[in-house]
Design a protein around this nucleic acid. Structure first.
Lengths: 105, 105
DNA sequence: TACGATCTTCGTTGAAGGTCGAAGAGTCGT
DNA sequence: ACGACTCTTCGACCTTCAACGAAGATCGTA
């Protein structure tokens, strides 16, 4: 199992995630695209999304999604992988994330 | 039917409301309280919410909700009434608003 | 060890957002 | 007409946020 930078990344308990954090995180088109790609294709490294923003900006978005409890990150070699916390989110905010992702836009 | 200041208030067509607008509007506790009170008790004048913010701040929140297509305003004498656009919202973004309002927080 | 790849952090900039008080506009009642 | 009431607009202030480039940290590989 991969270690390394993993220790430095903080993942909040799903119980301490606020609704405001989730709504604010999803109120951004770039971040919704990230989440939709993860939902469609499964885990992905940060650099494989092909989005038209700088790497530092992408890092900022991943931190927002991480702090909102929407995804979890773990290191694998020199890449940082992303995985959705869908089950936990659906326990904390039933139907919320799937409803947002299902709506066009 | 009441007229007056009504003409100056702009209400977007529900088709031109963006998901970002709705999510950003709902990502604020004060505004969610407003919407929840309207859902629970029906139409209300702006000044009857008893929220701990200045009247000018409240006006700002109502404008955000209006521009997000979440509520409609009409004038009745010297008060401005607020009514939810739930049916239209549920057509444009199925289940979104009710799901957000149903989650605690 | 040295290099390239990947991602984060830092510093900055510009835009947006929440808040307030003061002032303005519209309405009702006297 | 006058004043009271309700709400909006304006200007100011502060915070948050998305974006970038540059620099730093970590890891795999030559």
């Amino acid at each position: 199992m991969p270690v390394g930078r993993w220790a430095s990344v903080h993942h909040p308990e799903i119980a301490e995630v606020e609704l405001d954090d989730v709504l604010r995180a999803l109120a951004d088109p770039t971040r919704r695209t990230i989440v939709r790609m993860l939902l469609a294709d499964g885990d992905r490294a940060c650099g494989t999304f092909g989005l038209p923003v700088a790497a530092s900006t992408l890092s900022h978005h991943f931190r927002a999604l991480r702090r909102a409890g929407i995804l979890r990150q773990y290191d694998d070699g020199r890449q940082r992988m992303n995985t959705l916390r869908l089950d936990e989110l659906d326990t904390r905010f039933p139907g919320l994330v799937s409803t947002v992702l299902a709506t066009p836009g």
